[in-house]
Design a protein around this nucleic acid. Structure first.
Length: 328
DNA sequence: AAATGTGGCAACCGCCTGCTA
DNA sequence: TTAGCAGGCGGTTGCCACATT
């Protein structure tokens, strides 16, 4: 792992740390404490730059580091915080004891981000986007039958569903081809236009004002997903969810979150499945149990579990008491 | 069995910020 | 005021391990 061991022109070693180096660093810090990273390598007998020592300590050797898989609660926290803070990994890490910003960043990029993309959610704005949704898995699915269509109906705005459904029912190969060809590029223009029109007719929540107000008071904080006062938000039974700005209406298709379900087939091989089952039963809406049939599917039980728990997974309710100063 | 592709993640790079003289 | 420095931070790289072809 890491990089090829090498030395820079000052003779300092780079690349992966050896157990001996780790030991030296640990022993030195145990004796003298962290800090003064510039002089630390020399005093500790390490051929490393101070920066490298600091990173090694903070990201790997620190005794309070909690290694291992992220729990579902941790994932949920990361997503919630990311929806407010954006890529402020250190701020997010501060709310997750034992986790480092580097670890969270890696986990986001390798797991959560991809999952959100597959779910059709923009990982930057946390807004649903049809052009990110993996529709090919839908149309290629052998499970594209009435029941899955009913699931799809729960996935999207009913009007959007009607439109998509009419495309399917017309049963023209061209339509499906068109949809599939365009889903990863610019999207079917006609469909997008119609969807956008429909979307713009969706109910607009007033409930973002409070959060916007709270966040706007944070110094130097420009939350990526908190709308401007002129932008729109949607609220469903999953809490407040902010739309980024009007540009979302230009190219992207937004779906009401209360109807947004989860392609849970590859959820969190690292997550604690059990934890999913602990706290969500009250929020389960059977209509939201929908899964795409993808090659990544695990067991049906897991799929069901994840699907039914997606409501919790995507519950981005920002507590009114959230102290943003503390957060930052 | 070998080649190729992909995921995961430790570590590096370069920029930014805050402190101090 | 400003230059220099240390530390912090987010983005990126590149290697290893495993999966797929």
């Amino acid at each position: 792992m890491g990089r090829t061991p090498s030395s820079d022109k000052t003779g300092l070693k780079k690349g992966p740390w050896t157990p001996e180096e780790d030991q030296k660093l640990i022993q030195y810090i145990q004796l003298h404490g962290p800090g003064n990273w510039r002089n630390l390598p020399k005093n500790a007998g390490l051929q490393r730059c101070g920066k490298s020592c600091r990173l090694r300590w903070t990201n790997y050797l620190r005794p309070d580091i909690r290694r291992g898989r992220f729990s579902f609660e941790e994932e949920e926290t990361i997503i919630q915080l990311h929806s407010v803070l954006g890529n402020k990994w250190s701020a997010i890490a501060a709310r997750l004891p034992g986790r480092t910003d580097n670890e969270i960043k890696n986990y986001w990029n390798t797991h959560i981000r991809k999952r959100l993309l597959r779910m059709g959610i923009d990982p930057v704005t946390h807004s649903p986007r049809l052009d990110f949704l993996d529709l090919s898995s839908l149309f290629n699915s052998t499970q594209l039958n009435l029941s899955s269509l009913l699931g799809l109906q729960a996935l999207v705005n009913p009007e959007i569903f009607k439109l998509a459904n009419s495309l399917l029912l017309s049963n023209t190969h061209e339509n499906q081809e068109l949809l599939l060809q365009n889903q990863n590029s610019q999207g079917p223009e006609l469909l997008l236009q119609k969807l956008q029109l429909l979307q713009n007719q969706s109910s607009i929540s007033q409930h973002n004002d409070q959060l916007h107000h709270q966040v706007s008071e944070i110094p130097n904080c420009t939350p990526q997903n908190v709308s401007s006062s002129s932008s729109q938000s949607m609220q469903g039974n999953m809490g407040h969810y902010m739309m980024n700005n009007d540009q979302m209406f230009q190219k992207n298709v937004m779906l009401p979150l209360q109807n947004y379900s989860y392609s849970a087939t590859d959820v969190s091989e690292n997550s604690t499945i059990q934890s999913l089952n602990n706290n969500n039963n009250n929020n389960i809406n059977n209509n939201q149990n929908f899964s795409f049939d993808t090659p990544l599917s695990s067991t049906e039980e897991e799929k069901e579990s994840y699907c039914s728990n997606f409501n919790n997974f995507m519950k981005f309710e920002i507590p009114e008491s959230l102290d943003f100063d503390d957060l930052l």
